[in-house]
Lab assay of single mutants.
Amino acid sequence: MEQATVKWFNAEKGFGFIERENGDDVFVHFSAIQGDGFKSLDEGQAVTFDVEEGQRGPQAANVQKA
């Protein structure tokens, strides 16, 4: 698992990007966020996640709020 920071997340559209420590951004979809209830992330929030290869490149999976 990697630890990184949420760059931005649009709760209405259900997706955003996580900024990795190496500077690369990773796409995150609300369905990858672990937990119950409304799944959203806040800008600047610390998260841990795995990286999977998606249809359009790397994307976050198993996202957990740190």
Results as ranks from 00 to 15, higher is better:
N62R: 09
S31K: 06
Q55F: 13
Q55L: 14
D50L: 13
N10S: 12
F49G: 02
S40A: 10
E43A: 15
E12F: 12
R20Q: 07
D50E: 14
V47Q: 01
V51L: 11
Q45L: 07
F27V: 01
E2F: 15
Q64F: 10
Q64D: 06
N22A: 09
V63H: 01
E52V: 15
E12V: 13
G23D: 08
A32R: 00
K39L: 10
G16P: 00
S40Q: 10
K13V: 09
K7M: 03
A11M: 10
A46V: 14
A60N: 00
G37R: 04
V28Q: 01
D25G: 06
T48W: 14
D25K: 10
K65E: 07
G14D: 03
V26D: 01
E12K: 14
A46E: 10
Q34E: 09
G14M: 00
E19D: 07
G44K: 06
A66E: 11
E19G: 11
Q3L: 14
A60P: 02
V28R: 00
A11I: 11
V26E: 00
V47W: 01
M1N: 12
A60V: 03
E12Q: 14
G23W: 03
A4V: 03
A61C: 12
E21S: 12
G54W: 05
A61N: 08
S31R: 07
I18T: 02
D24Q: 13
N22C: 13
A4L: 02
A60Q: 02
Q55C: 15
G35W: 10
F49S: 01
D42L: 15
A66K: 11
Q59S: 07
E21I: 11
F9D: 04
N62T: 06
A11K: 15
T5H: 13
F38H: 09
D25P: 09
D42H: 15
D50R: 14
F9M: 02
V51K: 03
G14R: 00
F38V: 09
N22L: 09
N22D: 11
G16W: 02
D50K: 14
G16E: 02
V28K: 00
Q34K: 12
T5L: 11
V26L: 15
Q64G: 08
K65D: 10
V47K: 00
E43M: 14
E43C: 13
H29G: 03
Q59W: 08
D25Y: 12
F9N: 04
S31F: 06
K7C: 06
Q34S: 10
V26H: 00
F17D: 02
E43S: 15
R20V: 09
G37F: 06
Q34N: 10
I18S: 01
Q3S: 12
E43H: 14
F30E: 04
M1V: 12
V26C: 05
E21Q: 13
E21M: 11
T5P: 03
R20E: 05
F15H: 06
I18H: 00
E21C: 13
G57H: 03
F30S: 06
M1D: 08
I33P: 01
N22I: 10
R20Y: 05
K13M: 12
Q34V: 14
A4R: 00
G57V: 02
